[in-house]
Amino acid sequence: MSNKQRNRRLQSGPFMDNVVKRGPRLAKEQSNQSKISFVPTNANPAISRVPDQITVPGVYELSKSNFGTSGLYFNSNFLTNDESDTVFDYLNTLIEFENHERDGNLIREFAWFGEITYTYSSTHAHSPNETWPACLIEMKEKIKAYLQKSLNLDFECNSLLINKYASGHQSIGWHSDDEKCLGKQPVIASLSVGETRVFELKKKPSSPTWSGKSEDIMSEVVRVPLPSGSLLVMMGATQQDWIHRVPKEYHDRGLRFNLTFRKTHEASNVVK
């Protein structure tokens, strides 16, 4: 791609034109598949188990417990190739990232956009940053409109965490997004651009649906390869019953950005 083409993409108009086009195409793709559903309205039948690896677009039920139903929505082609390239170039050239280090080693870089301080693991805090670039506002609105149209899901979002993985050696470990400021059962929309990386989930040992057998910890792992332009949405009791990560990979992997859109609250105003 020439520099002139890259500059033209960075100065291009909104991405909203593609929202209506993607809905019918996804519905057509899913019409040839078996029904795999986790819908907040409980309108469709659920399945008892998801595959070990999710590659087919659709809505998946992970588990049911005393907390409720854990579910994922996956679309491998949420963005077109041109849109993915535009967002990638924008993030790679115009967003300032901070280092996330552990024991002196850089494990990834991050950027935070939100109205309040976001603290996780009781040790890391992202300061408020209310200035959203136009490109990221367009992505937020595109996701909101798409989820409303495709899932009848009223997705609220006022914050965004972007993780930058320079290579396969950079990663994020097992965790759940269950901080008090995110509320009881947050809906988190994850958009990926750049290199494909594998997203993994496994059942929490503390989950009411865990069998109690140590060998089941790894047998419950669900893997989702996330190509450039893909959208993954975690909802329901997923953060209460499951943990997730992006593991290290020891073969060549290029640059990847992951954008997680979510609704944050002042922690003092949230009852979990």
Rank of each mutant, 00 (worst) to 15 (best):
S2Q: 03
K4T: 15
K4G: 10
N7G: 04
N7R: 14
G13M: 02
G13P: 00
V20G: 04
P24Q: 09
S31Y: 10
S31W: 09
S31R: 12
S31K: 11
S34W: 13
I36T: 09
I36P: 02
S37T: 04
V39Q: 10
N42R: 14
S48C: 12
R49H: 14
P51G: 08
D52G: 08
Q53A: 09
T55E: 11
V56G: 01
P57N: 11
P57K: 02
P57W: 03
Y60G: 03
S63C: 07
K64S: 09
S65R: 02
G68Y: 13
G68H: 09
T69R: 11
S70N: 03
S70I: 06
G71A: 09
F74S: 06
F78G: 06
T80K: 04
D82N: 15
S84T: 13
D85V: 14
T86V: 06
V87S: 03
F88P: 00
L91H: 01
E109L: 02
E109D: 04
E109I: 00
F110K: 14
A111S: 13
F113L: 06
I116F: 13
Y118L: 05
T119C: 13
Y120D: 07
S122T: 11
E130G: 06
E130C: 11
T131M: 09
T131D: 08
W132D: 01
P133C: 11
P133F: 13
A134I: 12
K142H: 10
I143K: 03
Y146G: 02
Y146H: 09
Y146P: 02
Q148D: 15
L151I: 08
L151D: 01
N152L: 11
E156K: 10
S159Y: 00
L161P: 03
L161Y: 10
L161A: 07
K164T: 00
K164P: 00
Y165E: 02
A166F: 09
W174P: 02
S176P: 10
E179K: 01
C181L: 14
P186V: 05
S190K: 04
S192V: 10
G194M: 01
T196C: 09
K202Y: 07
K203L: 15
K203I: 13
T209C: 15
W210C: 06
K213V: 07
E215R: 15
E220Y: 09
E220T: 15
V222C: 06
P225S: 04
L226E: 07
S228Q: 00
M234G: 00
M235D: 00
A237I: 02
Q239N: 01
W242C: 00
H244A: 02
E249V: 15
Y250L: 12
R253H: 10
G254T: 07
L255N: 06
L259P: 04
T260G: 01
K263S: 05
A267M: 09
A267Y: 13
A267H: 12
S268F: 12
S268C: 07
K272Q: 13
